[in-house]
Amino acid sequence: MERSEILKQFGNDDENLINILHALQNNNSQNYLEKDDLKAAANHLNITYSHIYGVVTYYTMFSLKPRGKNIIRICNSPVCDMEKSSDIITKIKKILSIGVGEISKDKRFSLELSECLGQCDIAPGMMINEDVYGNLHNADLASIFEKYK
């Protein structure tokens, strides 16, 4: 969708900023916010580019760098940590040969750590895009990743 089409769905008050940034980022095939996105949002809301830059860099869900087609968010909070999420992270790094914050070579995946995802009853947990996976075992990971092209 064109940027202008997306922006049209939102009002011109500052309070729309975070929802706008989510919409622009979701519209980007590489799951990130380009400079032009920030500029377009600045124009739409009549606020400065630097203000928006400040907002984008504050929130962990926004990225100014290209990301993989699918975003893996693995929970790193006390409950998941206690249930050995670190083992899962190590295994994911091995399967996809990437580090945290990196993109896989085929650009299919980005790996990110996340604070509590509220899936503590099925710890260790992770999300891929909007899907939740819990009670993770190292052996399940490869087949889960298969589902994401």
Binding site: E15, N19, L21, T60, M61, E115
Partner: peptide, 9 residues
């Protein structure tokens, strides 16, 4: 109206 957070405790 709904407003979204973006990853900040």
């Amino acid at each position: 109206e709904i407003r979204l957070g973006a990853g900040s405790y």
